[in-house]
Each structure stands twice: as structure tokens, then as C-alpha cells.
Design a protein around this nucleic acid. Sequence first.
RNA 1: GGCUGAGUGGCAGAGUGGUCAUGCAGCGGUUUGCAAAACCGUGUACGUCGGUUCAAUUCCGGCCUCAGCCUCCA
Length: 474
Amino acid sequence: MLTIYNTLTKQKEPFTPIEPGKVRLYVCGMTVYDYCHVGHARVMVVFDIVVRYLRSLGFSVTYVRNITDIDDKIIQRANETGEDIEHLTAHFIQAMYEDTDALGVLRPDVEPRATQSIPEIVAMVQQLLDKSYAYITDNSDVCYAIQHFEGYGKLSGKHLDELRAGERVEVDKSKQHPLDFVLWKAAKPGEPSWDSPWGPGRPGWHIECSAMSTNCLGNHFDIHGGGMDLQFPHHENEIAQSESATGQPFVNVWMHNGFVRINDEKMSKSLGNFFTVREVLERYQPEVVRYFILTSHYRSPLNYSDQDLDAAKQAVTRLYTALRGLPDTDENLTKEESSQLEERQIREDFSQRFHAAMADDFNTPEALAVLFELAREINKLRDNHALSQAAPLGRELRGLGDMLGLLQADPEVYLQGTETKADLSATEIEQRIAERQAARKGRDWATADRVRTELKEKGIILEDGAQGTTWRKV
RNA sequence: GGCUGAGUGGCAGAGUGGUCAUGCAGCGGUUUGCAAAACCGUGUACGUCGGUUCAAUUCCGGCCUCAGCCUCCA
């Protein structure tokens, strides 16, 4: 039974979809005015895991992740660079795909954009006005009146009278309540705008998610996710808007992932202490980054450091090393029946533990631990020259890895790297190995060691095994 | 001030009312021409003070420290 921690109730709950067998999931995606940083990568990977796991349980999942392609920051950035907005957003959308594809993040099923959802947004704003949940300000903005919504604060656990609105930022005097927020923003001269019953303008940030999610998934759907920082006010506002507009409950389960930190501080745009995904990918293989993200539970903070990335790299190498050279075929008929039975039992045990971990609110660290135990089992069998028995365990390992989006590469390709920045081609390396092999045959250890050292200096590690010498990149 | 969440061995990071996480690093061993990889073994870990209990890192309470939200942020 899958349990998920629900921010709304602050506890783990057994997951039951609204419609049996189907899961409708919405995640707040990127605002595309800059490259993805590691924090974005975390949301993407975390919900990728959620989707993969739900699917592996047999649910038919509709995964919607929006793109915010119009807002203040985008306008500001475009003004700074002198680019037009479509050009700017197209560039960063493209960049986002490059980053997420590299990280093995499956594309969402639907990817609505704010600028393509204006009719739905306008319709929802109109509904809110009709139902008196919204009002028009002196600035001709349309604002949502939070005091009219009874459940305001239920997600974030905040009480209106205890919030320190205006403590850090000047409150807009035209608002009835300091926390009222803009649904429709009247256009200033030179700003991009769309026509509406209230004049030209653009959608406020919160309304787009309400409009797009309900439009794609219906008024009431199963799971809504995003980063912790969106809990308030963004998701609180989404609930208020959606439930007052539709008159129906909005979302059953709210999932929020923890932050990526650097030196125990939140990684964020405003603090400027972020690394972009592409920066990190210049130094580490995508799978290492993905693994790194999964080493901590999705709700815990994830501290980013080179040391941790290096450890992640070692760990992934260990898993691929275990998979290396295992026969792919199913012809494990050589061993006696009994050992096969035993082996199957072992496999089932691993699988069961893996699933138990994942079903417990997507406990990826514990699931990963199972992978390592499986790897150890494989290595032991290999040491005992029982490769044919190890093969099914290898398939099991890859199969479980698949649910995490890991271990799907050819081990050789992973370990040796595809395109090498190294100054040596694979053929050259093979040549040096042959050279060294000859030296070894003649017991010329000095030459053999020299070749090995030289290659090591170029980032190539040689390993002499029973079946000859293999190599991999550092 | 209000509301969340967290404090685990050298590092990272799960988990549990009473022998085991796991990865990296360390140490000893097996293997190897030597290595590497692998395997085996190994470490007085659970912020602090009380309470409940036969037994608490795990449950309860106080305290301390840290992070996040209360502006935009994944």
C-alpha cells in the first residue's frame, strides 16, 4: 500500500485515487527567464520518481507540469537583455528540456503555458468576480479577497491575524487585505498584455496554476506538487481561488519537496548562491546528479557539495561495476534447479524491500540501499565464478534501477564514457593495453606499470581481471 | 512574534521501543607480479535535561541549536 505524506493533513496517508486506477497529478514547473538550477532539478527528478513509481504500480497517470512564460521577472529580464519575450522564453524552455532530458526526467503528459491559457484564466477570474471573491482595485487590477474564503491558511497552517504582512515589503494600499493577491494585472505602457473584460493586462502568478490544473485535470484531482517555498502563498492561494471558483474540493494530496542547500542555506535565485544544472553537468555525469538527488528523502533538505557529488559518483560506479560483464541472455540453465529457486527467492526479497521503501512515501535512500545489497550479492557470485546465477540478479538490479531512472545505460558506456574529452580514443587505450599485456607476458613489470601509470594520469584506470584487462574513466 | 521541519558514527543519509541500514572515507585480511576492482572483518552514532517503560536514539515534556515560510523563489 502506497502512503504519501500530505502537507494538508501533515501526515502520511494511504493513497487512494479519486478514480480507481488513475492518478491525476499537477506540478508547478519553471518560470522560464533563466537556466534551471539544482533546486529545479530536484523538483523535476523527485516528481519524475513519483510518476515512475505510480506507473510501476499500474496506475494510469496523467502528469501535468506547467510553464510560466509570462510574469514580472520575465518582463524585467527581457528589458535588461533587450530581447523580446517570446524569444527569451523559447530559449529557456529549450534549455530546460536539455537539462531535464539529460537528467533522465520523463516529459510530462501535458505541459500548459500561461500565455496559451489566457481564456481559461480570464474565465476563472470572471467566476471569482461573479461570486464576489474578487474585486477591482483603484489600479484596475483584479484582486482576490482572501477573507471571503473560509479555509484560507489550511495548507500552510497560517492564521491571518498572526501573519506579518507588510513587515518586509510595503503593502499595496489599494488592497482590502494586505494578503489579497492579484488575479489580473492591468498592463502598464509597453508591457505585454491580453484583452479582458477588465481591460488589457496579464494573469497574476497564482491564477494561472489554478486555471491550468483544473483545465487539464478537472476541478478536483489527486496530487499537486512543488517546492516547499510554494506552500505559502502560492499553493494556499491556488486552493482559495480554485475552491471558491469551482465550489469543489481542489486537491486531495499536496506534496512538497525540500530545498537544496549550500552550506546550510537555501539555494535560491534571490540569494544568488545557486549552481545551474548545466554547470554541474560539465563536471558530473547526469546520472550521478540524479543519484545524488535521490540519496536524500524528498522532503529532507539536500546539501549540495563537491564532496557529496564525488561520493555519489563513486556509488554509481560501484553499481555499474557490479553490472559490468554480466550475460544479458536468459540461458542460466547450467546450474541445478535448487540454486535457481534459492536465487529467485533472493531476488523476490530484494524486490519486496525495494517496493516497501518506495511505497513508504517514496523513501529513495532506503530503496537505493537495496540496490547496493543486490550489487554485493552479484559481486559475490561473480567472485565465485557463478556468473550465470548473477545474471538474473543483474536484471533485477537494472529493473529496480529503472523505477528510479537509474542504471539503464550500458555499463561499459557508463564506465568508459561516451564522448571523451580525454586526449585518448578507445582504440588508443586498447592499443596501450595490448602493449602492456605483452610486457606483462614477458614479466616486464616496469613497462607494464609505466603504461598503467601513464594512462592513470590521463584519467584511465586499468583493472586486470581473470578475463583480461578492462579500463574505465576515473 | 506565528507557523513548519530538523538535530544520527570522519562525511552523507535512512530507520527502529530490545542483534544489521546503505554509500563514501579509514583500518585489518583474502585476491593480485604490484595495483585497481571485488569479497570478508572492523568502529563506545543517535543535540540536551527530565519522564514513561523491564528496556528509549526510537514514545512524552522542557531546553538549546539550525533551517524554511510569513515579499518573488522549486
